[in-house]
Design a protein around this nucleic acid. Structure first.
Lengths: 256, 256
DNA sequence: GCGTGCAAGTGGTCCAGACAACCAGCCGGC
DNA sequence: GCCGGCTGGTTGTCTGGACCACTTGCACGC
């Protein structure tokens, strides 16, 4: 009892953090106050610094929100809308639609130059290539072409095309951690027009995405979305002067 | 607002933070180590807690990077590409092009319902409305329509349309702090087709943006960009399981 | 009725230590 | 020459206080 709880938490601030995270997901609603710092201090028998460390972590994650003199509150889930590394399926479900997929191409071939360069591979390196037509609630939404270097996951397509490429990569210890995407708008090609069943509007939104796990490029993908049925929500942060470190021309010759 | 002692630093951790920020922007390069925590403790005569608070702030901003047992180092400037609240002019210059603007409409009128709702104003509230054709390196790039509530900046258009709406708002103490943008692709209207001098491709990228200063909505704007000449770069963060708070039964309709 | 001022409670900042975990390099033993 | 331990330096975690700034509610006085 009295002594430090063994087993559950290696670090005290993590146990406090876990307690608060549970509170948020289980009991509290947006706008509710969490217990005050001094209350938590007593409840867990730790110092206030430790409690603050736990709260700090949740604040920087956007889960909690402090107000001096009033308390600490559950923040609205603004993170819900942020652009994240999600797959088409996850994204569709989040928007309340039922995703569907039809595999058009699944093969292993040599990488064309643009793809090889984007993934930092040698030109002609063997790559898995998957082209899929993705739909939401039964009607076509997007055509997606994805490339994955064979050496990262040689057996990626062995049991057929996996339900989720990201999921299959995660199972192999290659969880995507970050990515970058470029969005453009253009007219549909005849092939796209047919596959996406475009009638009135012929505009499509194209995205080119590179996905990384740490430093290693995982996947290069190009998608074309129906312009009339798809939109992207982007949160914009303040344009502060960014605090750029000194750039040295020595960079090229720099070490290693 | 500011507070307290007139001296130099309001809070000690801010002076340490400022010192480190200067170091990063003036002297150090990416990968260099900043002075150790104990060194800073002596240099500024503060406790280690205070030094850590300063460093923590810069770490969560992505400026610094800790490594246990080794030290604290200048992080690579990943912020360079992030979507930010920039104006067309700033953005064009950042991409190395010379921005131009032609004002098509500048007037003050009653807000239509959709605009009033987006800005949290009463329907029919007076608003400044500015429509501009924006170009880069001489050729048209985008048509932008912006609405600003009159009561926020009554004299906004008095001296003609300002060079930068964001700049004019900043001068009035209404610096934009955050925003949200929805991006879609669609076919150009005949008017857009003419103004943007579209020939081969008729696709445009449309953005709808709300800009805020703290809690107060500042501006509602709709833009149409030439699909063949404009692209948006979006960094993607890891899709972590997001820690969603309990949804209140008060918010109806929301399915869990 | 109404404002004013006070007190309690909250987060914000700060101190002066402590020990643990980790890393690099030096140095002796093999 | 190589390996292992030692050592000094670094960040990570944590204590138990302190005072300040801010918000809120309530009692009091007008």
């Amino acid at each position: 009892m009295g002594r430090a709880r063994p087993g559950d938490g290696e670090h005290k601030y993590l146990t406090v953090r876990a307690y608060l995270a549970d509170l948020v997901t289980q009991e509290l609603e947006v706008g509710d106050a969490v217990p005050s710092e001094r209350t938590l201090t007593e409840k867990f028998g730790v110092s206030r610094m430790t409690v603050r460390q736990a709260i700090d972590a949740l604040v920087t994650e956007g889960v909690l929100h402090r107000e001096q003199g009033r308390g600490t509150f559950v923040a609205p889930p603004r993170a819900d809308f942020e652009m994240r590394l999600t797959t088409f399926g996850e994204e569709a479900r989040r928007r309340g639609m039922e995703p569907g997929t039809r595999v058009l191409v699944a093969e292993t071939q040599a990488a064309p130059p643009s793809v090889a360069e984007a993934l930092g591979q040698a030109e002609g390196a063997p790559m898995h290539r998957v082209v899929r037509l993705r739909s939401a609630d039964g009607s076509p939404m997007c055509i997606e072409e994805a490339w994955v270097p064979v050496d990262l996951a040689p057996d990626l397509l062995d049991g057929g095309v996996p339900e989720s490429l990201y999921g299959a990569l995660r199972e192999r210890g290659l969880a995507p951690t970050w990515g970058e995407e470029t969005i453009t708008a253009s007219d549909a090609t005849p092939a796209e027009e047919h596959a996406l069943e475009l009638t009135a509007s012929r505009a499509v939104m194209r995205t080119v995405r590179r996905t990384f796990a740490g430093d290693t490029p995982l996947m290069y993908s190009r998608s074309s979305y129906r312009g009339d049925r798809y939109s992207v929500f982007v949160p914009l942060r303040e344009a502060r002067p960014t605090l750029v470190p000194t750039t040295s021309r020595a960079t090229e010759g720099k070490v290693s």
